[in-house]
Design a protein around this nucleic acid. Structure first.
Lengths: 166, 166
DNA sequence: TGTACATCAGTGAACGCGCGTTCACTGATGTAC
DNA sequence: TGTACATCAGTGAACGCGCGTTCACTGATGTAC
């Protein structure tokens, strides 16, 4: 049932954003009484946190086996596939969620090993570029054009010293 | 009174985010009856849109007389000064607000005139970098360190061909 | 095998809440003649 | 100068709503002896 509620919540948030996600509606969609969810989540915030954490899990999975620009493409693809969830993941301030975000960043950073002492900067710049591109596209400020994405991501080069594979 | 309500709403959104902004509370803070605001804004959404539009006005003003990396610094500074408003500005989907966002982008892009046929890409990449950096910092995923900001923004170089001034 | 008990997921009624919005209104200000 | 009327910002009562959360409960499952 926990899984059913999470799934329902994930649908809800994509349809109506954060404000559109209520415990009651999630319960309804899971075909269960309006407070069955409280058996599995202490309160609404816990449900949100669970959703965010699950999201980071999925994102990390998407980033596995990618390197260089592919990493950026996978990141953007994930954001576009789950726009509201993506927003939630980064807005949520629960310590557990923050930790997940940080782990994902480490992951991303590892792929940009180059640049010696500048490694931290390079990683931060790469993350900023990719994250900003994702946000701007999913808020509708940049077009969802394949060539634009790859073009912009091409700029990731600047940050990468000696690149690993592809 | 319109101005008083807008000011109150701006305070509210910074304190409690989008969900914390209610017409009633804004009215309360403006020292006025709970539906006086309806004299000036048809509904809550209109109030939000006005807030976003005002925000873009302020952002554009902050960007005036900046070029190159200063532009990025001013952008980030604005986001950090008004985090919730910044979020609102880019999430809001009202056509008028979108148009303002687009105008701001044009502004930003003009400063990166270089790169010939790649100008569009360069501008998009610069915007992505700056926007992502702002978002990550204000969501608490990157530290608010002066040197980190300037370092990351240094990467804007990659996009800029022949730079105009500073 | 049977009986007694604990656990625990899920139920349904009920609570109080702040919200957005509508309504009929008041009172001040401006304008026509 | 005075009178009649329109405009319009702001008021206060009232509406219906869905929400989060609490409560006492039921019924199924598992465990001890």
């Amino acid at each position: 049932l926990r899984a059913a509620v999470l799934t329902a919540a994930a649908e809800l948030i994509e349809q109506g954003g954060l404000a559109g996600l209520s415990v009651r509606e999630a319960a309804r969609r899971a075909g269960v009484s309006h407070n069955a969810p409280y058996r599995h989540f202490p309160d609404r915030d816990a449900l949100l946190a669970a959703l965010a954490i699950e999201g980071f899990g999925q994102l990390e999975k998407s980033l596995q086996n990618c390197s260089g620009r592919e990493l950026g493409e996978a990141y953007v693809r994930f954001a576009l596939a789950h726009p509201q969830r993506f927003r939630l993941m980064f807005m949520n301030q629960e310590p557990q969620v923050r930790a997940q975000a940080s782990a994902t960043f480490q992951n991303l950073a590892k792929a940009f090993a180059g640049s010696g002492s500048q490694a931290e900067l390079a990683a931060a710049a790469a993350w900023s570029l990719v994250h900003g591109l994702a946000q701007l596209i999913l808020d509708g400020h940049l077009e969802t054009r394949e060539d634009l994405v790859t073009g912009v991501l091409g700029a990731m080069r600047f940050a990468v010293g000696p690149q690993r594979s592809a």
